[in-house]
Write a protein that binds this DNA or RNA. Structure first.
Length: 491
DNA sequence: GCATGATCATGC
DNA sequence: GCATGATCATGC
């Protein structure tokens, strides 16, 4: 095929790219044979550049279409909600961070901004077991960051730069930031890099757009856009003055210390429909958030409030006893044994969950045993704890792959109770517990369990341990909230 | 009173 | 019918 566009003309490039929609590379490039190795994560992008746009993939710090400042990026999509909705399969990985150069840069003239301020995005539907040449391209469009997002992104960039300047590039986490992350690039010790201001090596990282942010881009570019969003940040002036964290905290100040019943009364919440549910307090918190942030009925605050959706915020509600110990540990969604068996830590679901940004809301029992709203705030797991979670995950994976799940079976009448070998609560940040409707609610095992001979086992999930919530999460959230309030009071 | 296994109400 | 976000129940 011939390549028909003009590198010096923006609209010619965009128009040419648009022709990809609803076609595969094989179709549009008229290929009738395979081209060797098509596996590997970046290969779609490489073929797109080489076969369709006719230039060789490079790792230049300049945009791909240098003359007009456009950077070409491709990224996989997947279907969710029973194949009705297309969403990003993963974050969008941008340029690799050069730690040495980053520390002296200004955002406006940084490598990140020079390369990525004007993106041409090609989203394709990912499928396993087919050649990348047959992936169907679903959405093509140009993207420039809206000014209101840019303040958040610039602040994110500064947070990442700050960690590198402080010699803690090895402690960077995606949970540090809202829209722009710094994700690891490469899976093993070959991916370690030198960092300035510290002798410790750091994982190689690249700037990336969070999955939630990408989903917002997808909804915006997609012609079927029906999603409506609400905003925390209603104008650029607000976000110049306050961070997202401060905006959320300030909205809550007048509710802190209020008892459950007062909150329900004050915000006119109807909690009667779920008063017997075990997730009562979580539901109550969601309704409180809906009321404060004016979320329409039937929508969730995580998906409706644009800033939460774009930064993949996970909301958790905890009841604290008067000694600050949580009444219960906090669960993550149930995992599939087969997935743990098949995945590596760096691509694991757990790592993704633990690198997220959380919004924790704490209720506490007063001396009369009444619950009141005590504190709230954003939290992300630190580097050391993430490493300890990695060990817990490794242990679990080993047990699953050896079929060493059940330690002991006991019977009482017709009730069977089983003890597992799974990592226990101890002093660990996370542990593993059942998470099922009952013990017959199971997921298949990749390897038959040796003791019980079971081929499927009660659903389990990872839990944040009670002592970890008290010592790490709650104390950080409370301290941070007090700092934020003090700072805002002084403005 | 904690650790651990078991289970629940509800929404989509 | 299952995922969700938890709490309940029991033994040590």
């Amino acid at each position: 095929m011939s390549i028909q566009y003009n590198r010096l003309d923006k609209s010619s490039i965009i128009e040419y790219a648009k022709r990809l929609e609803n076609k595969s590379l094989r179709e549009i490039c008229g290929l009738n044979k395979d081209l060797g190795s098509f596996m590997g994560k970046g290969s779609f992008g490489q073929f797109l550049e080489k076969l369709y746009f006719g230039y060789n993939p490079n790792s230049s710090p300049k945009p791909d279409f240098e003359e007009v400042g456009i950077e070409l990026k491709s990224s996989p999509l997947k279907y969710i909600n029973k194949n009705t909705q297309l969403v990003a399969k993963e974050r969008l990985v941008l340029n690799i961070i050069n730690y040495d150069k980053l520390i002296d840069q200004k955002f406006e003239t940084s490598d990140f901004w020079k390369k990525n301020n004007y993106l041409l995005l090609v989203f394709f539907l990912h499928k396993t077991d087919i050649s990348v040449l047959d992936f169907v391209i679903k959405i093509v469009g140009e993207w420039r960051f809206p000014i209101i997002d840019l303040t958040v992104i610039q602040r994110d960039w500064l947070i990442i730069q700050g960690k590198v300047q402080d010699g803690i590039a090895h402690e960077i986490s995606e949970g540090d930031t809202f829209y722009l992350g710094a994700c690891t690039k490469g899976a093993n010790s070959n991916s370690l890099r030198r960092q300035p201001n510290s002798a410790l090596p750091a994982m190689q990282r690249a700037f990336s757009l969070k999955q939630g942010y990408l989903n917002n881009i997808i909804a915006t570019l997609s012609s079927h856009k029906t999603e409506k969003y609400g905003r925390l940040i209603t104008n650029p002036k607000l976000v110049e003055k306050y961070t997202i964290e401060e905006i959320v905290t300030l909205k809550f100040i007048h509710l802190l210390g209020l008892g459950e019943k007062d909150l329900i009364k004050k915000l006119k919440i109807d909690s009667s429909k779920f008063s017997k549910s075990k997730n009562y307090h979580s539901r109550l918190v969601k309704l409180i958030l809906n009321s404060i942030f004016e979320v329409p009925i039937g929508k969730s605050v995580e998906k409706y409030i644009e800033e939460f959706a774009k930064s993949d915020i996970i909301i958790k509600t905890v009841r604290l006893k008067s000694n600050n110990r949580p009444a219960e540990s906090t669960s993550l969604p149930a995992f599939k044994y087969e997935e743990i068996y098949a995945e590596e830590w760096n691509d694991s679901e757990l790592k993704g969950q633990l690198e997220s940004k959380y919004l924790f809301v704490f209720f506490k029992y007063d001396l009369n045993n009444n619950l009141y709203l005590e504190s709230l705030g954003f939290w992300k797991m630190n580097y050391t704890d993430l490493q300890s979670a990695n060990k817990t995950w490794d242990t679990l994976k080993l047990l699953i792959s050896k079929g060493n799940i059940v330690k002991e079976i006991s019977r009482k009448g017709n009730k069977i109770s089983r003890k597992t070998t799974f990592p226990a609560i101890k002093s660990n940040a996370i542990h593993i517990r059942p998470h099922a409707t009952n013990s017959y609610d199971t997921f298949p095992l990749p390897v038959r369990d040796k003791v019980s001979s079971l081929e499927e086992y009660t659903k389990h999930s990872f839990w944040f341990s009670g002592s970890y919530i008290r010592d790490e999460i709650h104390s950080r959230v409370l301290g941070r909230m007090q700092e934020v309030i003090a700072k805002c009071n002084s403005i």
